[in-house]
Write a protein that binds this DNA or RNA. Structure first.
Length: 231
RNA sequence: UGGCUAAGUUGGUCA
């Protein structure tokens, strides 16, 4: 079953959900029962492929099959709903999950926070992060990265800097993804100098530029005519 | 005992 699950996840991540479902059918035919991980893997694959409705239909089947939802199931579905822009449904599901005795964890909260950010409700996202703290889950570096990205996307550099300062204060370290968000937002605001300073800082802190960093650097430097620096 | 599942970042193309 672990072998099957690994293959199913591989197919899903390669965007081949149809084949993944075929493989599940074969498992069943071979008398191999599906476990929660098999289902969760499929839910994630379906959600990423934009088939939330199919994922929700499959939940019903899973329950009939005698398998109950766990925190990963809820988090996966909540994330899928958020990414589909169905924020309200995502929050309803989060409430349902609580009613069923599960408490949202940092991942669940992060998905909801990202969902709010993506529809531009960054103040609400920030409030949810506070609620998350009160609920005993400290925002982690991913949660912070989500917020920072959300803030930069709507041009709220004030909130961005405030949060970065807060992170420094709590000795949280900026990771590569967060650096990349910040760097590309500086470029988008035509703050080329600050972007480059940040790249230098990032390197000094032991964080190595990756393909995202380079793509952003090269694209923006070329755009402002600094082809030589890009090279 | 362990091994499989959930969250954030860039550029391009087309509408």
């Amino acid at each position: 079953i672990i072998t099957y699950n690994t293959l199913i996840d591989g197919l899903c991540k390669a965007g081949r959900v149809g084949e993944a479902i075929g493989l599940v059918a074969k498992m069943v035919k071979d008398g191999c029962s599906l476990n929660i991980i098999t289902y969760n893997t499929l839910f994630n694959g379906l959600c990423k492929a934009g088939s939330i409705d199919e994922a929700l239909e499959l939940v019903a089947k899973m329950v009939q099959d005698g398998c109950s939802l766990d925190i990963i199931t809820y988090s996966t579905l909540i994330d899928g709903l958020c990414k589909a822009g169905k924020i309200n449904t995502a929050f309803s599901l989060a409430n349902k999950m609580i009613k069923n005795g599960f408490s949202p964890n940092a991942v669940t909260y992060s998905s909801l926070i990202d969902g709010l950010c993506k529809v531009g409700k960054v103040e609400e996202a920030l409030r949810l992060a506070d609620k998350m703290k009160q609920d005993g889950h400290s925002p982690n570096y991913i949660t912070y990265g989500i917020l920072i990205h959300g803030f930069t996307q709507v041009g709220r550099m004030d909130l961005t800097f405030k949060l970065v300062a807060q992170m420094m204060h709590s000795r949280s370290v900026l990771d590569i993804v967060t650096y990349n968000s910040l760097i590309s937002s500086f470029f988008k605001e035509s703050r080329v100098r600050e972007a480059l300073i940040l790249v230098a800082k990032m390197i000094k802190s032991g964080c190595h530029p990756d393909i995202f960093t380079y793509n952003s650097l090269i694209a923006h430097l070329c755009k402002v005519g600094k082809v030589d620096e890009a090279l």
